[in-house]
Nucleic acid binder design. Sequence first.
RNA 1: GCGCGCGUAGCUCAGUUGGAUAGAGCGUCGGCCUCCGGAGCCGAAGGUCGCAGGUUCGAGUCCUGCCGCGCGCACCA
Length: 550
Amino acid sequence: MTHADALRAELARAARTLGAPDDVSPILERPRDPAFGDWATTLAMTLAKPLGKKPRDIAEALIAALDRPRVGIVSAEIAGPGFINSRLDPGYQARGLLQILAAPEQWGRLDIGHQRRVCVEFVSANPTGPLHVGHGRQAALGDAISTLLEWTGWKVDREFYYNDAGAQIANLAKSTQARVRELAGHPLAIPEGGYHGAYIAEIAERYVQQHPDDRDGNDLDALRQFAVAALRHEQDLDLQAFGVKFDTYYLESSLYTDGRVEQTVEALKASGHTFEEDGALFLRTTTFGDDKDRVMKKSAAKGGDYTYFVPDVAYHVTKWERGYTRAINVQGADHHSTTTRVRAGLQALGIGIPQGYPDYVLHQMVTVMKGGEEVKISKRAGSYVTVRDLIDEVGRDAVRYFYLMRKGDSQLVFDVDLARSQSEENPVYYIQMAHARMCGIFRVGEIQAATVTGDGVDLGVLKEPAEQELVKQLLDFPAMVKGAADNLEPHRIAGWLLETARAAHTWYHKHHVLGEPEAITNARLVLARASQLGIAAGLRILGLSAPERM
RNA sequence: GCGCGCGUAGCUCAGUUGGAUAGAGCGUCGGCCUCCGGAGCCGAAGGUCGCAGGUUCGAGUCCUGCCGCGCGCACCA
């Protein structure tokens, strides 16, 4: 239980003595201006209507009813239309830091999920090329969202869905074939819609080395397997460089080989939500909110294949059957039309899957600028910037932070030159520097940081404004983690880290820890240790390193 | 045309679920190194929160209508 929880409970108790309903839930805010105090509540204003009294009168009665010493309040006053601004005893407030020192691994963790299982699917790139900057955003987002859910008590599996079946893979095989034949002296003939990137030619060269008996590239099946394996390996290396690990790789092709696609189609037919028209099989998705019905199986004239969303529905059935009561898919906004279709398919099956299943976190497009011009991302034309290009140029931590510092649903302009030139000025170094500085204090003072527990230390001496700001900022962490997890918005962590780093730098610059009177030094060592641990915790959620020196 | 997202400082973006005088980074300008790391600190300039209405004690935030940008709207994936 944090201090804010205790304060809310006390406010609610006081409110009930005035006749407020039992379920009253006071809202606490940090005032924008510290001059207003440490906490503000709008409780009196929200009670004005139900109690039929003026906000300021209610505020007065509330203050009188509060057991102030119990929650460390030293002063409370009414402001504006009915805010109650309260100030806390510095020592009382700072004692919250002891929670961080006592159990650093637990700090900021909550149990909302009760270890229920959730599947977070992200990246899921077709194995038809290396990962580009758009996949990078997904990798950073998906990984951070997964970690946030772990911190709030969910049992998370990170899953990568391989679209290793279908038309794009056929294109890949034929493109590789064209390159193999080029090596054998034939004119280059990349098929319509094929892949032109240089990496295809490299794969072709290796194919010929390992398949000397097929210099003319006649074995399309072997070409396909070879190319897919090569590109999966490439993508694995990209993810490794980015520090992202998956628990499960699910292959689309397996849905065909184990009969799940057929089973799903039969079940949908049996549900009565399908119909045939012009020789094609349709799912009546309009019943479930779609704006038109969708083809499931193409007519014989068009090849008779299933459209892509049919295996996608079968795939999501497996998520449900594998025990994930919650599923989150991180995807680019260009795929947003699929959400309606997949959900419609799952509803049509009528097997008890909840309506909003799965959740989607859609992120807007990433535009790449290089040399002052937009780089058009086209795998087929072979012009794009890969995740590994970025990592090589600005470093893993900076790339991750860059992706995560803004909300997913705003468009992201990734200016490669800027990211590179700013690498010295990048906020991530500012944050990591704050962490390193805190570590530096212990290094210089030759103090084992872990031995600082705060036992017997009077934290009431942390009275400087810069100290109190830093204390409040650190103690806000658990609430901020909860907000970020509830909304699946890791960028809130990035913002918190920046503010915390700023508060830490300011404090560090104004006040010394070592060489002060013993009582001061001891209290400030607690604050330094708590800052170091708090910043490290935030960095860890985003998948960034917390260096002890830079 | 329809659906989703976005429009906030010169640029890139936050804005704690409707709160008080709208913030940060970069850029620009001006200060600060005997001092636990200057990869830092302090300060200044810079805003019609796209436009117009509405809801209420109170709107950048919610509703409606416009304008602009992006992405979707296949028997492509």
